[in-house]
Simulated scan of single mutants.
Amino acid sequence: METIRLEFQPNIKEKILELLSSFSSDELKIVQEDETFTEIKRELDASLEKIHNGTAKLYSFEELDEILEKTISEYES
């Protein structure tokens, strides 16, 4: 199966659902997006924009390793 995402005005929702209900459950499954999906998508879009415009804070593997070691050592005490 393939998945597509539709955005539509609320006033046509019933028409769309009426059309889609003409298909069998083997042919079509309606999947509702939840608020979690929308929030995560918003965060990822913002992160991607920062990468594209050069304002994202990026770390090398070595820098990340140093940060993690420091954090772990703080909790080991």
Rank of each mutant, 00 (worst) to 15 (best):
E76Y: 04
L68K: 14
I16D: 02
S25R: 06
E39R: 10
T38P: 00
R42A: 15
E49G: 05
E49S: 07
S47K: 13
E43C: 06
E62M: 01
L68F: 14
E49T: 08
I30S: 02
K57M: 08
D34P: 01
S60H: 05
L6K: 09
L20K: 05
K13N: 07
E66C: 02
K13A: 10
E43I: 15
K29C: 06
R42H: 11
I67P: 01
F37E: 15
Q9G: 05
E76I: 08
K15H: 13
Y59P: 00
K70P: 01
T36R: 10
L64M: 13
A46M: 08
G54N: 06
G54M: 01
N53T: 08
I4N: 06
V31F: 09
Q32F: 07
L17P: 00
T3R: 15
E14G: 05
D65I: 05
S77F: 01
I12G: 06
S21D: 11
S21C: 04
Y75Q: 09
N11P: 00
K57G: 02
S47F: 06
T38S: 13
I40F: 03
I40V: 12
I16Y: 01
S77Q: 08
T36F: 06
D45M: 10
E18V: 05
E66P: 00
L20M: 10
E76K: 12
E35L: 12
A46P: 01
S24I: 03
E66L: 06
T3L: 11
N53K: 10
T36C: 02
T36A: 14
L64N: 11
G54I: 03
L20I: 03
F23I: 01
I72T: 02
E33G: 03
K41M: 13
R5S: 11
E35T: 13
T55W: 04
L17W: 00
D26R: 12
E69F: 03
N11E: 15
I30F: 02
L44I: 14
D45R: 08
E14I: 07
S21N: 12
I4C: 06
F61L: 11
E27H: 03
V31L: 15
I12W: 07
K13V: 11
D26S: 12
L58W: 03
M1V: 15
E49N: 09
I72V: 05
Q9D: 13
K50Q: 13
S22I: 03
K41L: 15
Q9E: 12
I4V: 13
F23Q: 02
L19H: 07
S22Q: 12
P10A: 07
T71K: 08
V31D: 14
E66T: 14
K15M: 11
Q32R: 10
F8T: 06
T71W: 05
E62I: 04
S24N: 07
R5M: 09
P10H: 06
L28R: 01
R5V: 13
E76D: 10
F61S: 10
N53C: 04
H52C: 07
I72L: 09
F23R: 01
L20G: 00
T71S: 09
S25Y: 00
K29H: 08
D26W: 05
A46N: 10
I16L: 09
E27R: 03
N11A: 09
S21P: 01
I72W: 03
E27K: 08
F61E: 08
S22T: 14
E49W: 04
I40N: 06
L48N: 12
G54T: 04
P10K: 02
